[in-house]
Amino acid sequence: MNKTDRMLAIVLELQRTSVLRAEDLAAIFETSVRTIYRDIQALSEAGVPVVGEPGVGYSLMEGYFLPPVTFTAEEAVTLIIGTDFIEQRFDQDYGQKARSSRGKIEAILPEPVRMEATRVRKTMRLLTTNDERYRGPEKAYVEKIRQAILHVRKVKFGYAKRLPEEDGNRHSVRVAAPYGLVFTNGSWVLVARCELRQDIRHFRLSRMNELTMLDEAFQLPSDFNLQDYAPPDDRNVIVRVQVHADIADKVKESPNYYRESIEELEDGCLHMTFRVRLPEELLQWVLGWGAGVVVVEPESLRRKVREEILHMLEDY
């Protein structure tokens, strides 16, 4: 980023965030604090009313507002593709707002930039995955949970866990205080305080049913910030597998939440390490690759795989 672009970006950051220290700006623009000092000085000399308070930071004088800036073709394409993503992945309400925003962005672009943005956009496309046809309820639940978060109301829903509890039951009814929604690995996840577990838990919307918003209100903890929230990692079990060379490329391209590392061997095989809560969490993944994936450890998972194969033989 050249000096002119950086100075403009500094003004935009100060306009967006009321007070920023030189160290904050240096971190944002990946430059030195000394460079930020020079940029602030140049802005002041150019007539931009930047106010500096020792020990606090820089801010813009109250009432100063930078007029709307123009977009480059690349910036316009970035925003438009962002609206495409929101239309595909968010609920109907946000989908409509995404279409409206896209129209407004395209309307304000100068003709040359709009033509260039259209040309660039034609070379890119977001494809909906095959399983999107089955995610209608998930999108509807996004909207319901958003409303519950905005109105600070608890939610109630049926939930199916991936693995059964100790009593063998996978299904339960939960009441929870919704703290936020996270989109991860192609799926929406609710971060909420579960009344059953008396702690913060994560719930995949795709495993919910009969979601309703309750009249009962809740209070969000003052120290909770979804942007800073980091869930405790309780994946303490190590699983190692050997992948045959003929499917190595396919396995590498297949994302897996539990994957820790991949080691490519001289014969083209892969040695993969996973970290899980329970070995059974990888059972279906291992079986899905057939004879191309062999569990090295732990022995308990090897035994589970053998048992499942025997059950399959009985059916065939």
Rank of each mutant, 00 (worst) to 15 (best):
W285E: 02
F183K: 11
R302F: 02
T118W: 09
D167Y: 12
F183L: 10
L60N: 07
S187W: 01
G103E: 13
C269G: 13
Y134H: 05
M312T: 12
V243R: 05
Y257V: 10
G292E: 07
Q88W: 04
W285M: 02
A73P: 05
V305P: 08
L163C: 02
V293C: 01
L270D: 02
E308C: 10
E314Y: 10
R34W: 03
E264L: 06
I145C: 10
R259A: 03
S59I: 00
R102Q: 15
P68T: 07
Q219W: 03
S18Y: 05
R102V: 01
T78L: 09
P178D: 11
R38M: 03
R153M: 02
F90R: 15
S222A: 15
G52A: 05
P255E: 08
E53P: 00
S206Y: 06
A107I: 01
D223W: 14
G82L: 03
P255L: 01
G168N: 11
D215H: 09
Y229V: 00
I105F: 07
Y179V: 00
G82R: 03
S254R: 14
Q227S: 06
M115P: 01
A26I: 03
D39C: 12
L226Y: 04
P68H: 10
S44V: 13
R259H: 05
F29G: 03
M312D: 02
E297T: 06
V142Y: 13
E143N: 10
V189F: 15
G82K: 12
F157E: 13
F218D: 13
I10S: 02
W188I: 06
G136M: 03
L205I: 10
Y94T: 05
V293G: 01
V293K: 04
A176V: 07
S261L: 01
D215A: 13
I238P: 01
L270E: 04
G268P: 13
C194G: 08
N2W: 08
T129A: 11
F29H: 11
T70D: 14
V19G: 07
L181R: 09
E281A: 14
F203I: 06
N2Q: 04
Y229I: 00
L310R: 15
V189D: 08
A248M: 11
E30A: 11
S300R: 03
E116V: 06
K252M: 15
T70K: 15
A291G: 10
C194M: 14
V175H: 14
Y94N: 14
Q198G: 13
R193C: 04
V33T: 08
R89H: 14
V237C: 12
R174G: 13
A42H: 03
